[in-house]
Simulated assay, not measured.
Amino acid sequence: MIQRFHVFIPYLLYVCKNGIFIEKEECVIDIPRKFPKSIPIYRRILQRLPIYHPTYIEVEKRIKAIEAGFHGECYVDNFLKQVPFPKSYAILKDLHIKIDSNSYLQMDTLILTKKYIALLEIKNIRGKIAFQKNPDQLIREFDGEVTPFKCPEQQITRQTKKLQVLLKELKIDLPIKKIIVLAYSKTHVVLPPKYTTIVMGCDISIYMDDYNQLPDVLSTTKFNQLSRQLAAKSFEYIPPSIAQTYPVKLADVKTGLICPICKRKVSGQLKCPTCKVGKLLLQQQAVEDWFYLMKDSITNRECVYFLELKDKHAGNYLLNKLPLQPVNNHKLRHYVMSHDR
């Protein structure tokens, strides 16, 4: 359920010479952006909600927003490929790093070189936008409708401060550049942010070229070390469950194993009779549905009810088979998503 991308990085950082692994002078890390795992999960959740449920349309909106964000990020990724970066650089995508017990560094794109770190907050927004102050909000006007959003300038400022804390812990002193990137030029900026650079995706190379003229600050060893550390600390982001925001009751939800392909309920069979999707995969997906839909933990009793298992022993077996982390013992035991597998 949890996959880290950093497992690929050591092979990019070292080459073998005469049987000895040595650091490469030139190191390029740019792993393709992954399709958001949350999209197929939210689509499965739609199969568990009645179409007339007030939350149904909110889940649909969430899917569209995530899809739009992903397409905008991929579009900007294409322009980043055209940037003549220094010999050693890393483009890390969808970072989610724990800073402390209540704080996380979460970035669409982080660019690391020996010269600087650049944080890119990428937005795919249609219509006219204004960065309003007091209070800080992004106001969007589209098709005659005015909609307020969280302020991207405040978002990237918060993430910059968190990155500064992390770099201080790692004893790294490196300039941080923060940029709000509008994926498509169809966005009309009526009032720009006051303290943060904002650019169109097609123009990102101009700003990167200027940053790439800066002098080196890190050695090759330090750069490779920091690349590994940032990637190794990142883990999959699990959003707050839908039930934490919207009125979803367990009684409203369709339980059991549901095939994600044909949408039929699979009961008492080793696989979907139509699509041949295996039972274990269906069970794993159902547990994911629970975390995204109901709450960030699951008990044996909840597992048995939601997956329609035969008894608590089947629930205990499954919960210990999946990549979950047990918390507490005996009657108070529950399971959470694991970041260590």
Rank of each mutant, 00 (worst) to 15 (best):
L12P: 11
C16N: 12
F21C: 13
E25Y: 08
C27S: 15
I31K: 14
K34I: 11
F35V: 13
I41V: 06
I41Y: 06
R43T: 05
R44F: 00
I45T: 11
R48W: 00
L49M: 00
L49N: 01
H53K: 13
I57S: 04
K64V: 08
I66V: 13
A68G: 07
G69Y: 07
H71E: 03
H71S: 09
N78A: 14
N78T: 12
L80D: 05
L80V: 03
P84A: 06
P84T: 00
S88I: 01
Y89N: 02
K93M: 04
K93H: 06
H96K: 09
D100W: 00
Q106C: 03
M107V: 05
M107S: 01
D108S: 01
I111R: 14
K114T: 11
L119V: 01
L120T: 05
L120F: 07
N124E: 08
R126N: 04
Q137A: 02
E141T: 03
D143L: 01
G144R: 02
G144S: 02
P152N: 03
P152A: 00
P152D: 08
E153G: 00
Q154R: 10
Q154D: 10
Q155T: 06
K162R: 11
L163M: 06
Q164S: 15
V165G: 12
L166A: 06
K168T: 09
E169L: 15
L170T: 00
K171E: 06
V181K: 11
V181Y: 01
L182I: 07
T197L: 14
D203W: 02
S205R: 12
I206C: 13
I206Y: 12
D209M: 14
D210A: 15
N212T: 09
L214F: 08
P215H: 12
P215Y: 09
T220V: 04
T221E: 10
T221R: 05
F223Y: 09
S227L: 00
S227I: 07
Q229F: 03
A232V: 04
E236N: 10
Y237W: 04
P239R: 04
S241I: 07
S241D: 02
Q244C: 00
D252L: 12
V253K: 01
G256E: 10
I258R: 04
P260Q: 02
P260W: 00
Q269W: 07
Q269F: 04
L270D: 13
K271M: 08
K271E: 15
P273R: 09
T274R: 14
T274S: 10
L280V: 13
L281S: 14
Q284M: 12
A286E: 04
V287A: 06
D289W: 13
W290K: 09
F291L: 05
F291R: 05
Y292K: 00
L293Q: 09
L293D: 06
N300T: 12
R301Q: 14
E302V: 08
V304M: 14
F306N: 03
K310V: 08
D311V: 02
N320R: 09
L322W: 02
H330C: 13
L332Q: 14
L332V: 12
R333P: 15
S338R: 03
R341H: 11
R341N: 09
